[in-house]
Amino acid sequence: MNGIIEVENLSFGYTPQSTILKALSFEVPPGQFVAIAGPNGAGKTTLLNLLCGLLKPKAGSIRIDTADVESYSAKELAKRMAVVRQEFVPVFDFSVAEVVSMARTPYLGTFGFESSTDKDVIAEALAMTDTERFASRPLAQLSGGERQRVFIARALAQDTPILLLDEPTSFLDMKHQVGIYDLLKKMQLDKGKTIVAITHDINLAVQYCDNVLLLASDGGYSHGPVEEVLNAELIEKVFAVKTFSGKAGKSRFFLPRGKFARDTGRTAPQTNES
């Protein structure tokens, strides 16, 4: 194997009896953009927390850069892998620039102050994510889309080969969703970053990602290139929802259709169709 992330026979459960992830094996070659998809509760965030060493596997192994993830100190791991998480509760009023500058923590000495190199990296990250306009504003005053870009800027300033993201586009409107994925794609193409993103948006994954890891609720999974893995039957099975799939240009797209959706047959009695 020669992946920058190698997962072998990974099993995990939060209690001794339960298992969410069962004998999961996959690898991510350097420079690949991978989507992790699957229904709620399938273990996507759990897998992300295993990858970044927050949780310990019950069985199996995770290797980052050929070494076991648990063999890294927090500092060494932070130089290899940056994480953008979903939840954020601001406690104190840090400004955007201060938040992004914290990415340099693993590189600072004891009485740590940012060197001019650190400052260049921070400035570049702010510029790439188009966040320098509000660099001196407190984080709490930003909109959801702006704040997400700030955390991506922080992940970029961490200057790691690997980027892990937990639903980077949830709560964002269409323009910002595409904006985030364009930015990630640019990082992959220009900087050769390996990107692993959890997403609920299959259609964005189809358009931007190379591979997909589709986790099912029963512990099963499918892994491979998006065009091969993602098809209507599999999605209907994994998400337990009827879908309509079609083609837009080269990409396939999927639309979920519920029982009461307009084209599925049943309509609410008071609907007045003209």
Binding site: C52, S73, A74, A78, V89, A103, Q158
Partner: peptide
């Protein structure tokens, strides 16, 4: 928070 601290290399 604890998670983000670890992500940023702080035990």
């Amino acid at each position: 928070g604890e998670q983000q601290a670890k992500d940023l290399g702080v035990a």
